[in-house]
Computed example of a mutant assay.
Amino acid sequence: MIHEDGVQIKTEKSNITTMMEFILLGFSYSPNLQWILFGIFLVLYLTILMCNSVIVLITRIDPTLQTPMYFFLNHFSILEICYVTVTIPRMLMDLLSQKGHISFFTCAAQMCLVLLFGGLECLLLAVMAYHRYVAICNPLHYGLIMSPQVCVQLVTASWVSGVPVVIGQTWQVFSLPFCGSTTINHFFCDLPPVFKLACGDTFVNEIAVYVVAVVFIMVPFLLIVVSYGKIISNILKLRSARGRAKAFSTCSSHLTVVVLFYGTASTTYLQPKPNQSEETGKLISLFYTVLIPTLNPIIYTLRNKDITVALRKLLSKLST
């Protein structure tokens, strides 16, 4: 379907091509499924928006949810809305128009935001793991350590710390010379497929991407592992079986989200040159950009009695 070259400007003194436009192939290889895919992704996107908006609403207005745990969950839900909005609306537009033209600047902006929100999700998951560690392993000092000021500082640091790194990373990638094909075999401008269009020696750039991925994926992940190692050790020391079950239940939703997100994102970004095929990479990207954000609010609400009670209270107020 979409295989023609994008707009190009060639210099007279060089064979290197300055790209003014890329073409996202998306799911053009299955034209008969375009409308079905459009319907599925539209429903998933609206579900993500609705579920996360409800979580944001009830964690802000319900007095019983004005705690650090739900403060972090509130920001995590806001992040999920931003994260999916960077990719899914663009994918829906391409499925609807069956055209994948995207300008050089728009492609760079999309990649920058995807990397920013993805890195932020890693940091927020680490902050939430630290909160659970304090709550379970150091309950006597919980109020002092997790004061409102500290919570705001942790969230602000998570939002701000990745901005200069991601902007520098995106500039580094898009300052590379591009030549040959302008087609990106993906549904959004992601690092691996864009790298494949670059010509010349990209070894230094790939190492830089790998180092940043290690910092923003592996370092938070190690912090999460250490936190939960201490949490599990403390839980096992509890004499009450009911207490152990309650503590494990409190942590299970967060652990599920961590495993799902890190399991897919690390497969894509922790390899300087990914070995998986383009179609496999596209499928993995669907998991961490669409399917996991769909599951996250369900995981947090179904496993959390406070959220379900607050939601029932809200629905009863709306019905009356």
Rank of each mutant, 00 (worst) to 15 (best):
I2D: 10
E4M: 08
E4G: 08
I9N: 06
K10P: 00
T18Y: 06
M19Q: 11
E21I: 06
I23L: 09
S28Y: 04
I36L: 10
F41K: 04
Y45E: 02
L46G: 07
T47H: 09
N52H: 11
S53F: 01
V56Y: 00
L57G: 04
I58A: 02
T59V: 03
I61D: 14
P63F: 01
P63N: 04
L65I: 12
L65G: 08
P68H: 05
Y70L: 09
L73Q: 09
H75Q: 14
S77K: 02
L79K: 07
V84Q: 03
M93N: 07
D94M: 14
L95I: 00
G100H: 05
S103V: 03
F104P: 04
F105R: 13
T106Q: 08
A108I: 01
C112I: 00
F117K: 01
L123Q: 03
A126F: 10
V127H: 06
N138K: 08
L140N: 10
L140Q: 10
L140E: 14
I145C: 05
M146K: 11
V150G: 02
L154S: 12
T156G: 14
T156M: 15
A157D: 06
W159I: 15
V160F: 14
G162T: 09
G162W: 12
W171C: 15
V173G: 06
G180M: 04
G180I: 01
I184W: 00
N185P: 08
H186Q: 03
H186D: 05
F187E: 00
C189D: 02
L191V: 15
P192S: 00
P193L: 03
F195V: 06
D201Y: 09
D201M: 10
N205S: 15
A208T: 15
V211W: 07
V212W: 11
V212L: 13
V219R: 06
F221P: 09
V226T: 09
V226D: 13
G229C: 13
K230Q: 14
S233W: 15
I235Q: 10
I235F: 12
L238R: 12
S240I: 10
G243A: 12
T250V: 10
C251S: 09
V257C: 14
V259R: 01
T264G: 09
A265S: 13
T267I: 11
Y269G: 14
K273A: 11
N275H: 13
Q276P: 06
K282W: 05
L283R: 05
I284A: 10
L286A: 03
P293E: 02
I299K: 02
Y300S: 04
V309R: 03
A310N: 05
A310H: 02
L311K: 02
L314K: 04
S316C: 02
K317D: 12
L318N: 04
T320F: 14
